[in-house]
Amino acid sequence: MVLRALQGALAFLTRLPAGGDERAWDAFRRTPMAFVLAGYVVGGFAALPLAIPLPLSTTAALYLATLYLLTGVTHVDGLADVADAAAVHDDSVDRDRRRAVLKDSQTGVGGTLAVALTLVVLALGALGMAGSGPRVAATIALAAEVGAKTGMAALVCLGDAAHEGLGSALTEEADPTALVPVLVAAVPVVALAPPLGTPAIVAALLGGPVVALLVLRWSRSALGGVSGDVFGATNELGRAVGVHAGVVAWALL
């Protein structure tokens, strides 16, 4: 069951040839822990360039290229849509209007700005990771990815869907008790921390869940619940925050 759920997670979250079918998709949406397991796979691949002693700028560029070759742009598109909805700041606007903006295929100024800023923030974080040494950098990248996927799983377990669609397909099968195996699956990444690096890895891991809780609170108020776009935005923001949290913790502690 878990392996089939992981297959479904990789088919949904990445461009890897996982060969997910309907049974794998059903197993995935019933197993929030599969998000975290997929995070180990994505994070492991994305961390490989950081483990190679190359110039810092080259290492950071390879990290970003590997990451988005693996995951595609679906989650980035979700970030853009959520940012456009968030940019509708008039308090008199109701949730239906924001949801309409969310579904609009055209990207507005808010979405463009959010994507650009997030990519710049992630690139600067990658430079910071690269300057921390190969082992530290690779482990922070792995922990940040696991943390981002843990955040997505938290939305599945704690959120309610704003409307019928991907959000409801993921949330209708889960409840808060499913968070226990999610957290159990995420914790082992801390054991990979280099000497004196445990605080940095913990910080990188926690970035995703913290972002998820903030996004969940906003989405309940602004949209009436979560959606596929909210999941994508949580992933992109959680990764960027996790990378910087890990780098800052390593530098300060």
Rank of each mutant, 00 (worst) to 15 (best):
K103P: 02
A144N: 00
A148M: 06
A51D: 05
L69Y: 03
T139D: 00
K103H: 15
V88A: 13
T31H: 06
E172D: 12
T31A: 12
T66G: 14
V73L: 15
D91A: 13
R99N: 08
T139V: 15
G43E: 04
G108L: 15
L64Q: 08
A100W: 07
L64P: 00
V42T: 14
D94P: 08
G110A: 13
L124A: 14
G131C: 05
A123D: 08
H163Y: 15
G147R: 00
A100F: 07
G128F: 04
T112G: 15
V156H: 04
A154V: 06
A61Q: 06
V115N: 06
L113M: 15
E145V: 00
A162H: 04
G131W: 00
Y63L: 15
G108Y: 09
V41R: 01
D84E: 12
V82Y: 02
T31R: 03
L122W: 03
R135Y: 00
G78M: 07
A130R: 01
S132Q: 03
L117I: 11
M33K: 12
R98D: 14
L155M: 10
L117R: 08
F35C: 06
A100V: 13
A141Q: 03
G78Y: 02
V156N: 02
T112L: 14
T71W: 00
Y40V: 09
A47Y: 01
T107N: 11
V156Q: 09
L124S: 13
R97N: 00
E172I: 13
A100D: 13
P32H: 10
D90Q: 08
M33Y: 01
L48W: 11
A34C: 11
L117M: 13
D90I: 07
A126S: 09
A61M: 13
V93D: 05
T171H: 10
A38F: 05
L102S: 06
R97W: 01
G131Y: 01
G108A: 14
A148D: 00
A86V: 09
G78P: 03
E172Y: 03
G43M: 10
A169D: 13
L70G: 02
D81A: 15
V109G: 10
A162N: 08
L69H: 06
A114Y: 03
P55A: 11
T112Q: 12
M129K: 02
L117A: 12
V136D: 01
T118V: 11
E164N: 13
Y40N: 11
A143L: 03
G128C: 10
C157E: 07
A65H: 02
D91Q: 13
S92R: 11
G131I: 05
D77I: 05
A34G: 12
A86N: 08
H75W: 06
L50T: 02
A51R: 07
L166V: 15
A137C: 07
T150L: 09
L158A: 14
I52F: 10
L62F: 09
A85Y: 02
A46D: 03
G43K: 00
